[in-house]
């Protein structure tokens, strides 16, 4: 199964996402921001980083990258897409997911091992988890505060589209402690924490993040 990882100028965690795909026994494929071609991948990861420096607004430039036109079309047709951190911001800017990410309420960049609850395990990226399962994976961002208007929020909760929620304190002021959401179909998921940094005992706080990648691979195998 081929999983593509997009490199934008300023992407940083692309190497980590590629490694996570390999460790989950997938074929990792590098995709280039300027190349409007998904090279027949079965799923796409938009990795963390600071695309185009994020000097304007996180993800605001990246959404116009040639590759994103393809990602949006494919996502609307059901291709699994995971946005991590900056990738989540890009998915919001691209209107594949509702709401926005704003500066952390404490106004500092924050890197920590974060406890989370998997609220929805029926998405393309979280099927390997039990509903309500608690996991610990790294969270690291300066603009990770999730916001949405009341109607959107009510819709996300009613449709069960909150995928991850912070546990043990809200680290950045996200509304309803939301750490990740999905689209209605469950193929597009955006998360602020970094599952790709929790895939090996040696270099992460846990291996709790591997499930995101095994989930999508299992789904792809199931056809």
């Amino acid at each position: 199964m081929r999983i593509g990882v997009v490199t934008f100028p300023g992407s940083l965690d692309d190497v980590d996402a590629l490694r996570a795909v390999r460790l989950a026994a997938g074929e990792a494929v590098s995709l280039w921001h300027g190349d409007a071609d998904l090279h027949a991948v079965d799923a796409v990861v938009l990795p963390g980083g600071f695309s185009y420096g994020d000097y304007l607004r996180c993800g605001a430039i990246a959404r116009f990258a040639p590759v994103m036109g393809e990602v949006v079309v494919a996502a609307e047709q059901g291709l699994p897409v995971l946005g991590i951190c900056n990738g989540f911001q890009i998915l919001c800017e691209s209107h594949l997911l509702p709401g926005a990410l704003i500066r952390n309420d404490h106004r500092k960049f924050s890197c920590r091992d974060q406890r989370l609850r998997v609220e929805r395990s029926t998405t393309a990226w979280t099927a390997a988890y039990e509903p309500g399962q608690q996991i610990v994976i790294p969270l690291k961002n300066g603009e990770g505060g999730y916001v949405a208007d009341g109607t959107t929020l009510a819709m996300l909760e009613a449709e069960g589209r909150v995928v991850l929620r912070y546990v043990g304190g809200n680290p950045n002021g996200s509304v309803a402690a939301i750490a990740g959401i999905s689209n209605a179909r469950g193929n597009v998921v955006g998360v602020m924490p970094h599952p790709e940094h929790a895939v090996e005992e040696l270099c992460g706080p846990s291996t709790d993040g591997l499930g995101f990648f095994t989930s999508v691979l299992a789904r792809a195998l199931a056809g």
Binding site: D13, V15, D16, R19, C111, R112, H194, H197, G204
Partner: peptide, 28 residues
Amino acid sequence: VTDQYDRYVRGNTVLAQPENAGVLRVDE
């Protein structure tokens, strides 16, 4: 201080602050 620094990126950090020394994997 140190929580304002990304210690995970590149996926090779074996030990970081507050450990005695920073440790990196060079070859997987």
